[in-house]
């Protein structure tokens, strides 16, 4: 074995260095042990005994400039600020913004979005929509991360109502409001029946049979469609 160069004799004897290392280990051990005991009797609560966060009991607050879910900002009178100019939809590299423009009753405002939907399954949270917006109508400062799970794709499509509601919540409840709302949504969804279409199918076998039936039906449908396509006379 080559002896590593640049080490002092003391380092090469190794034992003193091990001892030093063990002192460090031991320091952490004793400090955390003491802190845990102190916490038990209600002392030193502000000093944490661990560097880890006990999610979901504890939550780390996102930083001020965290780029989270979108929201549509509101005018002072509560109307949505967006003028349906389509700049965001054009800038969006994922092409996940769908806007349907409508005429605003107020002649001062030209257009407003009848529908404004973001497909968050496609969104890459790049923030280009926010950059593109000329009226500061869309922002990503909600301090809430994208929804992690849902039962079907519809759960991930954020409509105009959802997006404007976030602005209201942010206004009323502060930066934790939207996060709390999302966690409440998770809790609510946990109680949702497994198969929303057929809540009476409780057992796994029943569900499985139903799934196979659907699959077969789907397959039959596709085969029929294929036959149609194939039967179409070619343009030759």
């Amino acid at each position: 074995m080559k002896t590593p160069t640049g080490m002092t004799l003391r380092e090469r004897v190794y034992l003193p260095e091990i001892f030093k290392g063990m002192l460090v280990t031991n320091y952490h051990f004793l400090r955390n042990l003491t802190l845990h005991f102190a916490h038990l009797v209600g002392l030193a609560k502000e000093r944490s005994a661990a560097a880890t966060v006990q999610y979901p009991d504890q939550r780390k607050t996102y930083s001020e400039n965290f780029r989270g879910s979108h929201r549509l900002t509101l005018r002072p009178n509560g109307d949505v600020r967006c003028t349906a100019c389509f700049m965001c939809a054009t800038a969006c590299p994922a092409q996940c913004i769908y806007i349907e423009a409508g005429e605003h009753p107020d002649p001062q405002v030209e257009k407003y979005p009848l529908r404004y939907e973001i497909d968050t399954l496609r969104c890459i949270y790049c923030g280009l929509c926010v950059e593109a917006c000329p009226c500061d109508a869309i922002r990503m400062d909600t301090h809430v991360h994208p929804r992690i799970w849902g039962f079907d794709r519809k759960d991930f499509i954020e409509t105009k109502e959802v997006l404007t509601h976030r602005s209201v919540v942010l206004e009323e409840q502060g930066r934790d409001g939207n996060m709390n709302e999302m966690l409440a949504w998770y809790k609510e969804q946990e109680r949702r029946p497994y198969d929303r279409l057929r809540p009476e199918l409780k057992t796994y076998t029943e569900r499985e049979r139903r799934r196979q039936e659907l699959e077969q039906a789907d397959h039959a449908e596709r085969t029929a469609a294929d036959m149609l396509v194939n039967a179409r006379p070619s343009d030759g």
Binding site: T25, H28, F29, N32, H36, A49, A51, Q54
Partner: peptide, 10 residues
């Protein structure tokens, strides 16, 4: 548990 304390975990 001891290793958790040593490594600042729970």
């Amino acid at each position: 548990k001891g290793s958790a304390l040593i490594q600042d975990r729970v």
